[in-house]
């Protein structure tokens, strides 16, 4: 099922303890795995997001590499510029990884990301998606799912529009490699990081990273929610090559109902049975569509 064996996990850590993440932070764990997969070959460009803080405030630093911060909408362009600058100076080896949250990817960073994707810039763009503007205290983004409470979609005006389908958007750019991953499946996640590193051109990783603070979930349930998102078929683990070839990397054996995922989270507590049923129908439809795409 997975390309990587447990034995391939690097014991070396490139992210230090003492970082500024909240307890149970999904994005912190995701980037720890990312750095394990990348090793010391990468520089990291971080746009305004939780990771602006987690990476350390002056004079601290939590990642064992060069980290460059950049303004909110500029992640893809700044990262592309770093890569082009390195190339112009004869460094063809160092890889550039861009780290952006869902706001910096789905919303304010989308134009720049689309431009970089169209130019097929040689960067790895990593979106860690915690489904709202969490660093500023959980305001709605276009990655916030239908029915979620946020501080800008408060009760009873919950989010009424569905989450943007970022994977389809990126696939439509025909980039060489796009994949989804999440922290409850670290072997899958690390193998995708490695695959992305071996690919030339713009690579996109969509990481599902629960946020206990924003989602109102217990801090020890982060990995469990990440697993439930996959088991309920809400967040399929997939790869898309050249915008065409879809692969589902993990087929959940039993069909876990969406309530199992929704119920532990306070952000969904106002949903009634009818709305939960609507969400279940949407999940089923999306899964069927995904299965059709992979069958082609």
């Amino acid at each position: 099922m997975f390309n990587t064996q447990v034995g391939d996990f690097s014991r070396e850590e490139f992210m230090s303890s003492g970082h500024n993440a909240c307890a149970g932070c999904g994005p912190a764990l995701a980037v720890r795995f990312l750095m394990k997969a990348m090793g010391p070959r990468v520089v990291v460009v971080i746009t305004a997001s939780c990771w602006s803080i987690i990476s350390g405030v002056v004079p601290l630093r939590s990642l064992e590499t060069v980290v460059m911060h950049c303004p909110f909408p500029s992640a893809a362009a700044t990262g592309s510029g770093v890569k082009k600058g390195l190339e112009a100076l004869g460094d063809l080896q160092t890889q550039v990884v861009v780290l952006a949250g869902d706001g910096g990817t789905f919303d304010i960073g989308l134009q720049g990301l689309s431009g970089a994707a169209e130019r097929n810039e040689d960067i790895l763009f990593v979106c860690y998606d915690n489904e709202a503007y969490m660093n500023t205290g959980m305001q709605k983004s276009s990655a916030t799912p239908y029915g979620s409470r946020s501080t800008t979609t408060p009760d009873p005006m919950l989010k009424t529009n569905p989450k943007k389908d970022i994977m389809k958007i990126m696939a439509a750019h025909r980039i060489p490699y796009a994949a989804t991953a999440t922290i409850a499946f670290p072997e899958d996640l690390i193998s995708k990081f490695k695959r992305a590193l071996e690919t030339k051109g713009l690579r996109f990783l969509h990481l599902f990273t629960p946020c206990p603070q924003g989602w109102g979930s217990p801090t020890d349930k982060t990995v469990e929610l990440s697993r439930l998102a996959v088991m309920t078929r809400l967040f399929p683990l997939i790869e898309v090559e050249d915008g065409e070839k879809y692969t589902i990397n993990y087929l959940p054996e039993e069909h876990v109902p969406i309530e199992k995922y929704l119920n532990p989270q306070r952000r969904f507590r106002s949903l009634d049975q009818e709305e939960v049923a609507l969400i279940q129908e949407q999940v089923n439809r999306d899964w069927e569509k995904m299965c059709k795409l992979t069958a082609q």
């Binding site: 500029s74 893809a76 510029g81 770093v82 460094d91």
Partner: peptide
């Protein structure tokens, strides 16, 4: 002989140069 990149907006033009200048170009 330099690199020439036609970007999708002025915003990205300057962001691109910020990246290139971070790298030292």
């Amino acid at each position: 002989p330099g690199e020439y990149v036609s970007v999708e907006s002025e915003y990205s033009a300057m962001a691109y140069l910020i990246g290139a200048a971070y790298a030292g170009a």
